[in-house]
């Protein structure tokens, strides 16, 4: 096994203050890693360190090649005049000179990636006019065109319709078969159980390992704090539901 992503004692944050620290984990080729944690727990900060956007405050991080990064869709500009095909074609920027126009082969690869994510009908639709799930699939198509060995996906299933979720799930399975390393932030504990490894964060690393042995009630409570209800089935905890507090 060869690790495509490795972090050791990693701390990352903003203005010299760590938002997450003590992160030590690895993602092997052909492995999926689910990153669990509450909002503000450090998932996005970790991802920004993995893609090189943040310099580690402590520890080390190593990623093979340039990772493809699928940010939360809300961070894209919905008013920017681009089609689904234009967005997918942007992925080719990672492997071709930026000063030249997109080649025909790049646009063909982008069209094929859109087909792979089930959006061949929406190829020429304006990105901002698509549904949230469709937009996530377009961004996944852009990541596919990038041909990166490491894919980092920040809550790709958040607010996504079931059809989009299933399609993306199937593609992640295919990518695993292509021996890529896939790191995914998610809130869905049940889904995390289907990954090869889970990494639990709450401002620090709570746990890392195989889901069967790692996702215990104690780990989930340490990850999400006391404000959760852990729903259990025969095999153990399947879902952590945050309790909403309303201020009056």
């Amino acid at each position: 096994m060869s690790a495509l992503v490795e972090a050791g004692g990693l701390a990352a944050g903003y203005g010299g203050r760590p938002a997450v620290h003590g992160v030590t984990f690895a993602a092997e080729a052909g492995h999926t890693v689910a990153v669990l944690g509450p909002n503000g727990g450090g998932k996005t900060t970790l991802f920004r360190a993995l893609v090189g956007d943040l310099v580690p405050l402590a520890g080390s991080v190593r990623v093979t090649g340039r990772p493809a990064y699928l940010a939360q869709t809300e961070r894209t500009r919905l008013d920017f005049p681009v089609s689904a095909l234009d967005v997918a074609t942007m992925g080719a920027l990672a492997r071709s000179p930026w000063w030249l126009p997109a080649r025909r082969a790049d646009r063909r690869a982008a069209a094929e990636a859109l087909e792979r994510v089930g959006l061949e009908v929406e190829t020429h639709a304006r990105f901002g006019a698509l549904s949230g799930g469709q937009r996530q699939r377009v961004l996944l198509a852009r990541a596919l065109v990038q041909e990166a060995r490491v894919m980092i996906l920040d809550e790709p299933f958040g607010g996504v319709d079931p059809a989009s979720g299933e399609r993306m799930d199937a593609i992640l399975g295919e990518l695993r078969g292509e021996r890529r390393a896939i790191v995914v932030a998610t809130h869905d504990v049940a889904a995390a159980r289907t990954f090869d490894r889970v990494l639990c964060l709450n401002g620090r690393q709570v746990a890392f390992g195989e889901p069967g042995t790692t996702l215990s009630r104690a780990v989930l409570e340490a990850t999400y704090g006391s404000e959760i209800v852990v729903l259990e089935e025969d095999g153990g905890p399947v879902r952590a539901v945050a309790v909403q507090h309303h201020e009056h």
Partner: peptide
């Protein structure tokens, strides 16, 4: 003309552009 693709990629998605090497 030369900057067209980088400008579009950054304007559309700053975070995503970083992972494209921009």
């Amino acid at each position: 003309a030369a900057l067209h693709r980088p400008l579009a990629a950054v304007a559309f998605d700053r975070d995503g552009a970083r992972s494209l090497g921009l």
